[in-house]
């Protein structure tokens, strides 16, 4: 820029400062605050705030529900990554490579759950699983599998998979689009050459599509991991509130219950720090596992 340096800096300050100040107040301060509050025993009023050092973390370590919640969180991460990526990849390939006339229809429909709120999805699926009027049980009864019908969300073994299914249902559209974007950038000539060489569609998939859309696949997997660890509790809280017992508790729903239902804000903040630590470690480890040089032919 060719303006005098004073007016240039004034302009830069005009552009950057207001947003950054608000960002400090409403994003940075709360996050550092979360760390700070985790060292206190605090019920929300300033009179009842005492510094207790690492006691909240020691309590975390001994809390059996936390262990259960971490395991459940990783169950969701694992099932969602496998379920969403398998289906999203398959649909993305089918809709871009196989010359299906009505592809735009599927593309639009598969994205529908992505634009619905988690509350709506949660309530809708609660109905689908409802023991009396739900689709699942009445379908099982109609095909004669009456003994399979059960209160899905009230059953300790089945509650987690039952919540994972709507999570996958709601996740596919976005990642399908991302991968479709990747596939559309793969030069057509590669597939034509492979056709001439007699490579089967399956071989083309593994040797051309997967390596070339690997950046999108990797981004999608990491994104699923992050959003699952940071956000799958919304669906849990809406559908079961962590129940039955604590069978479907995840870290986020446990934080909400401790902090905003039991007013143990210090302990809640410590759970928040735990979520941060767990998700950072998971992302770093997964990044290491998924590391693969970008392929260019």
């Amino acid at each position: 820029m060719t303006f005098s340096s004073k007016s240039k800096y004034l302009f830069l300050a005009f552009c950057l400062l207001p947003t950054f100040l608000l960002f400090i107040i409403f994003t940075v301060y709360p996050m550092l605050g979360g760390l700070y509050y985790s060292f206190f025993d605090w019920s929300g009023t300033s009179a009842n705030k005492t510094f207790i050092g690492l006691d909240n973390y020691i309590r975390l370590w001994n809390d059996s529900i936390i262990k259960k919640a971490i395991i459940n969180d990783f169950f969701f991460v694992f099932v969602k990554v496998i379920g969403i990526m398998t289906l999203a990849l398959f649909f993305a390939v089918a809709l871009t490579q196989l010359k299906i006339k009505e592809a735009p229809f599927y593309r639009i429909v598969f994205f529908f759950p992505n634009i619905m709120s988690v509350v709506v999805i949660g309530i809708l699926w609660q109905f689908i699983y409802d023991p009396n009027m739900g689709i699942v049980n009445s379908l099982l009864n109609q095909v004669g599998l009456t003994e399979w019908a059960r209160p899905w969300l009230g059953d300790k073994t089945w509650v987690l998979p039952s919540i994972a299914i709507p999570a996958i249902w709601a996740g596919i559209g976005l990642f399908m689009l991302l991968i479709m974007g990747g596939i559309s950038n793969v030069p057509k000539s590669l597939y034509e050459a492979a056709d001439i060489d007699g490579a089967s569609e399956w071989q083309q998939f593994w040797h051309i599509t997967v390596p070339l859309v690997w950046p999108q696949i990797k981004t999608s997997i990491l994104y699923i991991i992050i959003t699952s660890l940071n956000g799958s509790f919304v669906l849990v809280q809406v559908m079961t509130g962590g129940g039955p017992g604590s069978a479907s508790e995840v870290m986020g729903s446990y934080l909400y219950q401790r902090a905003f239902e039991d007013f143990q804000f210090g302990y809640g903040a410590a759970i928040g720090v735990l979520i941060l630590v767990v998700s950072l470690i998971t992302v770093l480890v997964s990044q290491f596992i998924l590391k693969k040089e970008k392929v260019e032919y």
Binding site: G33, G34, L35, Y36, Y37, A259, I275
Partner: peptide, 14 residues
């Protein structure tokens, strides 16, 4: 990358 849950308690009190 940072879970927004971490900031909810301080944000509420702010």
């Amino acid at each position: 990358m940072i879970p927004s849950v971490l900031g909810w308690i301080p944000l509420f009190f702010l």
